Simulated assay, not measured.
Amino acid sequence: MKRRTAEDYVLDSVIYVCLIALAFVTLYPFWNSLVISFNDGNDTAAGGITFWPREFTMENYKYVFRDSRLIHSFWVTVARTVVGTFLSILFTSMFAYAMAKRGLIGKKFYMIICVVTMYFSGGLIPSYLLIKELHLMNTFWVLVIPGLISVWNMIIFRTFFLGLPDGLEESAKIDGCNHLQTFFRIVIPVSGPVIATLSLFTAVGHWNAWFDASIYITNQNLLPIQVILNQTISSILEVEASTQISGTKQEFLLGMQSVTHKSVVMSTMMVATVPILMVYPFVQKFFVKGVLVGSLKE
């Protein structure tokens, strides 16, 4: 075993210092937002809030959760995330499996069409008219079907499938499997890392999405939590603006003098971020193997 020198220890020290600094720069903004969400809003406006709440309060979260629609919209978002992620990964992986077939007629033409959609879209008005003609307005499926196929994820899936040994499918054919049986019984079980990674990315996209719901949905019972939280932030902005115009003392709804726009923004950000953030530790080990292998191996 090679004996470590002084230069090795110095290099290790520099690496650890850089990693600690990077971790701090990455985590501190989130921690500071969490601290502000638990701090009195008027006290936060004075500045100086860093690592701990100076005047601890739960009024910010009470203001956010006072909307009775929040719990219902939370489950709408959960349903959208689960159903949308499952169907998107299923159909995208099946599409990628077909595109990975070397004998597919017109494969280059199909690939060109797919790539074009990554750079150009039909526009907002044509998309709205299409959704309307498909009778998807004010339905749950308008949150799922338009994003059913992801070309970027398809390319990653396709590249990953091209890297699989040909012997896997050949042995499946010998055993009498058709293409669907080969896909579900052979290909999917060995594609765990790339499926887990792309599922997380897709789930985060569904969880954070709000623009499509704000355009295509007017039924309050189908609005996801992101739209409701955005409306909550807008409501307190209206209160602040009205009190400034009237020249009265700045007081907020339900007599919450400790609630300000910034404190509500931080609270809503925590409510919207923490649930999906808790998923990351369970799939973190798949990131490098799933993304790097799937995107670089050809």
Results as ranks from 00 to 15, higher is better:
F252R: 15
Q257F: 14
L19P: 04
L22C: 15
L292T: 14
I245T: 15
C177W: 07
V190G: 01
L124N: 03
S37F: 02
Q250R: 13
L87W: 12
F109H: 04
S267N: 12
A45W: 12
I156N: 08
L104I: 12
L222E: 08
K297S: 09
K2L: 09
T5L: 14
I225N: 01
W75F: 14
A213R: 11
C177R: 10
L292D: 07
I131D: 02
P53A: 02
L130H: 10
F65A: 12
P126G: 02
R102M: 01
L198S: 00
G294H: 06
S121L: 00
G106N: 10
L134E: 08
V83K: 08
E298H: 13
L136M: 15
A79I: 02
P193N: 15
V190L: 07
V288I: 13
N39W: 04
V83F: 13
V76K: 07
A196R: 09
K108F: 00
G294F: 08
V83C: 06
V151C: 02
Q220T: 14
I20L: 15
E238I: 09
L200Q: 01
L164P: 04
N39R: 10
L229F: 05
F91W: 10
C114Y: 12
Q244N: 09
L222V: 12
L277T: 14
L34F: 14
E170Q: 13
F140D: 03
S246D: 05
W141M: 12
L253N: 12
I49F: 09
L223Q: 10
Q181T: 13
F86G: 00
T243P: 02
T92I: 11
T50Q: 12
M111R: 06
H206V: 00
E238S: 11
Y63Q: 13
K249W: 09
Q250D: 01
L90C: 07
N219Y: 03
T232F: 02
K289V: 00
L222K: 10
F157I: 01
T77K: 09
V35W: 05
F140G: 00
R4Y: 11
T273P: 01
S93F: 11
V116H: 03
W75H: 11
Q250V: 11
K173L: 10
P126E: 00
M269F: 15
T50H: 14
L292Q: 15
I89D: 06
H261V: 13
F211L: 15
T139I: 11
V259F: 05
N153F: 03
S171E: 13
F161M: 09
N42K: 15
I174V: 10
S242V: 09
L164Q: 14
V17M: 14
L87F: 13
I236V: 13
L90W: 14
S171L: 12
G103F: 04
C114L: 14
E238L: 11
A213C: 10
S263K: 05
I225E: 04
Y61S: 03
A46Y: 12
F201W: 13
Y97H: 14
D8A: 09
T81F: 02
P193A: 07
M266W: 03
I20S: 15
I71W: 15
D12V: 00
A79H: 06
V116R: 03
D175I: 07
V64S: 04
W75R: 04
